[in-house]
Design a binder for these strands. Structure first.
Lengths: 159, 159
DNA sequence: TATTGTTATACTCTATAACTATA
DNA sequence: TATAGTTATAGAGTATAACAATA
């Protein structure tokens, strides 16, 4: 639809219309902002003695999930989840509970400390919060609308 | 979907103004889109037999960089770069060259195949490209402008 | 003395394969 | 037979500490 979505590499685009960014330019910006976001996240969670994947797992446990459900959401093999949950459990941040209806399944539940930890992490991502606070209300609304519009297409099955 | 989208821990925001998203809501969207972007990237580079960090390293080598420069840009300890570059070099994607003016330094240079590989990877990120193609020209311009506005604050030194 | 790059070490994440206990 | 979870294994990324060569 966007007509000239030609691949880019900046053809003869010395004075290119600044209002018509190439796909490559947008991708570069997405990568830069995404990378900065995850650096902020990693720095904050490491102060809590957690790795990124451990904190991500904790953040998925707003409600109990089976090991398998965690593997699906983390987009990794189920065998990895054993170790990740082991380490969170040994720190008292999650618990494994038996599933009453299917004895093969174990439900992973965040403890009160686990919930508190992930709450604090969200609050402590100050670089990201400050960056968002630097936007006007209109810009914040625009950014959110665009990200929400992008999200389903980005998360769609990669045929 | 805005009603029962239990996506985040918004305070008492059941019927919150959709034009005034909370910081937490925006952060969740950023994380979701960022995660999807890096999943696309990881899937594409893995078809080329590369890990994400290897491909990221290759993408930094549009011009030669010393090992130390790579460590700075990858935001990791210098000792890690040895192994990453070792693996890229054993696949013929980069070369180590001596620095004429400082014999302690080794410049890492992408080979022709290295340049071609990173070029192909950018072109093959179809999920991301399709998502961007689903936006109107105005939306693309708005997204790019917002990301560019966010970038310096996000990349700022994390005191 | 300080810096560049490397090695050695230990831990975590990752996929694959094989196993168990359930279903 | 199929599924949930685990274990064993091997490769890769990560930080720390120590080292040689050079500045």
């Amino acid at each position: 639809m966007s007509s000239t979505t030609g691949t880019d590499s900046t053809p003869g685009a010395i004075g290119a219309d600044p209002a018509a960014p190439s796909t490559a330019q947008i991708m570069d910006s997405m990568a830069a902002v995404g990378t900065a976001y995850f650096h902020d996240f990693a720095a904050v969670v490491s102060r809590h003695g957690l790795t990124s994947v451990q904190a991500k797992t904790l953040s998925l446990l707003r409600r109990p999930l089976p090991m398998r459900g965690l593997a699906d959401r983390l987009v990794c093999d189920a065998s990895n989840v054993t170790g990740i949950v082991d380490r969170l459990e040994s720190r008292g941040l999650v618990r494994r509970e038996p599933n009453p209806t299917d004895r093969r399944v174990k439900n992973v539940v965040a403890t009160e400390e686990g919930h508190a930890t992930i709450r604090r992490i969200r609050e402590e991502m100050q670089t990201t919060r400050d960056a968002l606070d630097g936007l006007t209300l209109e810009e914040r609304a625009g950014l959110y609308a665009l990200l929400q519009r992008l999200r389903p297409a980005m998360e769609a099955p990669h045929s």
